[in-house]
Design a protein around this nucleic acid. Sequence first.
DNA 1: CGTGAGTTTGACCAGATGGTCAAATCAAGA
DNA 2: TCTTGATTTGACCATCTGGTCAAACTCACG
Lengths: 202, 202
Amino acid sequence: MPKDRAPTRIQKKNRAAILEAALNVFSAHGFRGATVDQIAAEAGLSKPNLLYYFPSKEAIHTALLSGLLDVWLAPLHDLDEAGDPMQEMLSYIHRKLEMSRDLPRESRLFANELVQGAPRIHAALSSDLKSLVDEKTAILIRWMEQGKIAKLHPYHLIFSIWALTQHYADFDVQVRAILADEDPFEGAEPFIDTLYRKLLTP
Amino acid sequence: MPKDRAPTRIQKKNRAAILEAALNVFSAHGFRGATVDQIAAEAGLSKPNLLYYFPSKEAIHTALLSGLLDVWLAPLHDLDEAGDPMQEMLSYIHRKLEMSRDLPRESRLFANELVQGAPRIHAALSSDLKSLVDEKTAILIRWMEQGKIAKLHPYHLIFSIWALTQHYADFDVQVRAILADEDPFEGAEPFIDTLYRKLLTP
DNA sequence: CGTGAGTTTGACCAGATGGTCAAATCAAGA
DNA sequence: TCTTGATTTGACCATCTGGTCAAACTCACG
């Protein structure tokens, strides 16, 4: 294992390659379905070499998840009480949909983990995620009380945004099987936009 | 392997026990994460005994999926053009949400399969599912043209229903991590009901 | 109760998989 | 250039896993 001094040029490159490869493999096959050999091959390393940088398959997975959680939650984090409520909501929703389009592997990585009961990130859900959501729902509640947006159950409002946007990444195969040649996001964007304009208008 | 005459009492009992056990295990761990030993143990059989009833792990999975697809699509199948449009939609949505609550294992079984690219049911998606959806969206379009419900992209409308309802089964851990002690479905039902009343009102 | 079909199982196998290790190779600063 | 730590690898191991098989057991029915 590399010492924990400042990482060398090679360490940086290989760690990054491993995480990139792991994202491909884990998001496509889940934790159990992914093999270390596969990740190593995709990263252009031998298996023992890969295990020189990360002590175990589990460690790679953990590093990936915790590294990406911030990225994944950034749009919600940026929801700003000072902005215009409707605009803030629509832009949050828009960013989430963009992430589904541009970062489907990340979405599926989390989906795989969650659908199997989140055995490896349960802690982060009830601490980091929970407190971020609580902080932001507090804003939503104030907006609702000020009559700026419709009064709705704030948690379920958040869930609906996650469900509607991530659906396009997580269940991409199904969406494409039904839409045939149509681009999913071309129709999804105006649909979701309309939905939330109607829903949130008081 | 049992002959394909009329199934004996024992055959019926064991096949059912295996499928029930397999539903538990596959829905919780995905295809790759499930082991034949686990399914056998849960069904109260030895592994060779289990493989006497089904030729392979794959065969169990396939039998499960194809057996449950009809159950899963029944609510959409029952959408009736002769009924009141708004009521038909709301009752479809309601039944889907009930299924998320009462059949979460089934939901996760499909979610696991879909999120990994549906390697084993891709065919059924582009044939059975696609044609059912096409048939029902045709009804939606007529309702929209008659001004009975709001004009929306019919495919994305269907997707939204799937996403919103199945989210509660598939990502149950996350939902519960955030809701703490609150019952997910108690809040979900009125929220989703309100959402679609607003959305579908022309 | 006997018998043949139906059912069950212990022992076993081959391949896959996560992980280890000692030895070899490489890279950068003195 | 030389040395020392960083990097890489081939060979190897233990365990898990899907699946097989022959032998044993059980059940329904004549």
